[in-house]
Amino acid sequence: MRGFEFHAPSTLKEVHNLLAQHGENAKLIAGGTGLVLMMKQQLVVPDHVISLANVAELSGIASENGSLRIGALTTHRTLEMSDVALQGASLLHDTYKHVATIRIREVATVGGALTHADPAQDSPPALLALGASVKLANGKGERTVDLADFFEDYYTTVTEPDEVLTEVIVPKQSASAGAAFLKFLPRTADDYATVCVAAVLDVDASGKCQSVGIALGAAGPTPIRATDAEAVLQGQQVTPEAIREAAETVRAAVDPTADIRGSKEYKTDMSVVFTRRALEQAFANARS
């Protein structure tokens, strides 16, 4: 790993100052499980590494006004174990407990995973399906970005070199909604998904879809919100046929890359299959 200068600020203000000074040549580090790997491979060679570990104001999970506010430094494990998160959006619990292994989840952070922007990660589809947004701050102010507009390409987001992702805001899952996160793992339980799908579905007493969120991971250069599939179901009676029709639309929305986990064609087919299964499961959970 190439050398660099290490900074350990203890306030967000100090982080802003360091980024203003070093910006393009600096990387922020939280848990490090993503960045250190990339630095070892010299895919990322920063001159400055700024640790957020001591910035206490970036941690914590709060429930307010129909939303969960999750500090960027909150670890996967903390979120997985949080009753506040479980009650606010059970999909988060169901998703975060599937990420890698407990040892990784103990240090990998919610905000770090999003800015890392590996499209095969588990959490972005769940957050997309729930309609989450992120707060990006620099020394001059902050902006809120819909997560659907956050990812640009492989490992690339709209975050500017002087910005810090400070918070993830997740609208609470309706109490009557059903949710599902399915991770297709033909190799090992701690692997990245071949494809993964998150779905949240709210139906009224007659079985009509009141709201729906569907998103996929490992199915393209970014996590993908399946808006066409959502449109098929929105306001319609949820039937096995409607679910099949909705799932079929993701064939045109995904753009997977062939790798050891499967060919482009295989992953495309599995995207359709797992979208259907996720919707079936979310629907069953909504009715139970």
């Binding site: 490090g32 499980t33 040892r103 103990e106 240090v107």
Partner: peptide
Amino acid sequence: CTVLVDGKMVSSCLTLTPM
């Protein structure tokens, strides 16, 4: 390479010492 850092399991191969 698992070690316990403040009681929690950590991969010491992914941890920069200053962290």
